[in-house]
């Protein structure tokens, strides 16, 4: 079980500490407290259920950023076989914030691409905290073209705070790298299933986020701007991130309701990090079910539906201009 507790998980952490004490007591003094332990375990489960049943949007963001949450490569490990990683954009560098490769999901061949965060300082420096440079998006494009050529379905796993805002990013044209992916992803005649597994950080997420199906994990979020960034603009104070998170409507439930996501993938009780193996199995089944459905369409039909899916996104009012009518 997770030993890193978010602020709102404190009641659970406290109960877990007591449970540890009980167990310790059993071992040391051979006192039979099995009944007590069972009662405590149940209470922990209930408390966790209660907390997770009513997470605020800001708490959801914290779960999505939980340091123990499974990252893209954890899913590859737990749900894929025969993974062959394919490196580099063949131009500049192998960006470790975006990885890609060939993989099988229950025997189904796919090309899989994901954004990757680090678990510690060393790995975070390597993958730049999950913030890709242009070469990351260009690697993704290169691999997706490969998938299109050999008719491999594309699976993307998104977990990024955003594309990297740096001097070199601009010099190597991060805007172009993302824009090109957006346009080209509408032309690949193979099924594309996108999943937001943690953070869906703006253009950096969308850069590998065009698909026939957009899935989102129950406690993931997807937003045009980080809650902190939004708070800094609106209230001039990043501490108002909780208000911004609520105002921006970024949770899985909000996005499903607004038809910006197609499906919510349920997380184990207590979040994906509570049981990464179960999470990976659930996600794999969701991806495979969607791929099976998408494979019944012709490539032409698939592209048409993909276009129409994004075409209708956006709410506005259209005022009919007063036109002089010749009628009665």
């Amino acid at each position: 079980m997770a030993h890193y507790a978010l602020p709102f998980e404190k009641p659970v952490a406290e109960l877990e500490r007591k449970l540890d004490e009980l167990r310790h007591l059993t071992n040391k003094q051979n006192v039979d407290v099995a009944h007590e332990i069972a009662r405590m375990e149940q209470k922990i489960a209930e408390t966790r259920k209660e907390i997770y049943a009513k997470l605020t949007p800001w708490q959801t963001v914290q779960v999505a950023r939980h340091p123990l949450r499974p990252y893209a490569l954890d899913y590859i490990r737990d749900m894929a076989t025969d993974f062959v990683e394919l490196h580099g954009d063949r131009i500049h560098r192998d960006d470790r914030a975006i990885f890609g490769g060939l993989a099988k999901l229950d025997g189904q061949r796919v090309l899989i691409i994901g954004t990757q965060k680090g678990r510690d300082t060393k790995s975070n420096l390597e993958c730049n905290f999950g913030c890709a440079y242009p070469e990351g998006y260009r690697k993704a494009l290169r691999l997706m073209k490969l998938a299109a050529k050999f008719r491999l379905p594309i699976v993307t796993l998104i977990d990024t705070p955003g594309a990297y805002p740096g001097i070199e990013s601009e010099e190597r044209h991060i805007a172009e790298a993302i824009a090109l992916n957006l346009r080209e992803m509408f032309t690949f005649p193979v099924p594309i299933v996108v999943t937001i597994i943690g953070e869906g950080g703006s253009g950096g997420a969308l850069g590998i986020g065009i698909g026939d199906r957009v899935l989102i994990l129950q406690n993931a979020y997807y937003s045009v701007i980080s809650p902190e960034g939004c708070a800094a603009i609106l209230w001039k104070n990043r501490a108002y991130a909780d208000r911004a998170a609520a105002a921006l409507k970024i949770t899985a439930r909000d996005l499903l309701q607004m038809k910006l996501a197609d499906e919510i993938v349920a997380e184990p009780l207590g979040g994906a990090h509570a049981d990464p193996k179960l999470m990976a199995q659930t996600l794999k089944q969701s991806i495979l079910a969607n791929l099976r459905d998408l494979q019944t369409y012709t490539p032409e039909h698939l592209l048409k539906l993909r276009y129409e899916k994004f075409r209708v996104m956006g709410v506005f009012e259209e005022r009919q201009k007063a036109v002089a009518s010749a009628g009665p």
């Binding site: 824009a179 957006l182 346009r183 509408f186 703006s202 253009g203 969308l206 986020g209 065009i210 997807y222 937003s223 045009v224 701007i225 939004c230 603009i233 921006l248 409507k249 970024i250 996005l255 607004m258 910006l260 993909r306 276009y307 994004f310 075409r311 996104m313 956006g314 709410v315």
Partner: peptide, 16 residues
């Protein structure tokens, strides 16, 4: 920003 994720999706729509 005031249109949330809808605004991000305009990037997709126009590129399509």
């Amino acid at each position: 920003m005031y249109e949330g994720l809808f605004s991000l999706m305009q990037m997709a729509k126009t590129s399509a």
